[in-house]
Nucleic acid binder design. Structure first.
Lengths: 113, 113
DNA sequence: TGTCAATATAGACATATGTCGAAGTCTCTG
DNA sequence: CAGAGACTTCGACATATGTCTATATTGACA
């Protein structure tokens, strides 16, 4: 699977020049994956966790939602390329793809040149 | 209506510390508004347009969609606080709220401190 | 091998979303 | 005042999304 960071980083910031239709189609899914309160918190929990990774077991407890629902949200973030997934024994650890977040932030937030 | 820039700017970056449920509920709608290819391009078209603003008549031509559909997307961006709206005579001009984009980008893209 | 614990997948359901065509609202201008 | 042009609002529709319960899978361990 491609690194979404590359996809996004290739684009000029939103305010610099109009995004092409193709670029927009590639970037939108990343934003869509982030555009949910639960997934935003999941992403933040993982990204800010010690060691840059977090176990699903820890994440479940942070929410008042069923375990399959959390699993579903993690899958959405993983499929978008925002979280890496690693199974170690019985536990599954997710790790934030910092590069994807960085380039996405730059795309949205950089002032016009 | 509140400036979403303030709402977002108050939060630490995603990677610094876990977003609270309340913060996530406030930020998610902004991302949701951006998380559509058409709206991403609209936002980019307006933000990068000469003078920082664009007339709806110009925006319509950039898409293969009906005019009410474009109007709908502009309303979503406006309601989220990402676009300002001003009617001058018969024409309506939209202007990007740069501050909102800046703080949103910082929230997503800032490396952990 | 059998059982338990940690996740994931499947299927169902209510609600949200993107799109359109039709109709409404302003505002200029003759 | 009437008509035309620029948008917006309304109502309908198909599809996507978030959530749940029930079930499957996987790995450790007795």
């Amino acid at each position: 699977m491609l690194d979404p960071a590359d996809t996004v980083a290739c684009c000029s910031p939103l305010s610099a020049e109009p995004l092409s239709a193709e670029q927009a189609e590639q970037v939108a899914p990343l934003l869509k994956a982030l555009a949910d309160p639960v997934r935003l918190r999941l992403m933040s929990l993982v990204a800010s966790h010690t060691g840059g990774e977090a176990c699903v077991c820890d994440l479940n407890d942070a929410f008042d939602l069923s375990q399959p629902t959390i699993s579903h949200h993690l899958k959405v973030l993983h499929d978008a390329g925002l979280l890496d997934r690693e199974k170690r024994g019985v536990w599954v650890y997710y790790r934030a793809r910092t590069s994807a977040l960085l380039s996405l932030g730059a795309l949205i937030g950089c002032p016009p040149s």
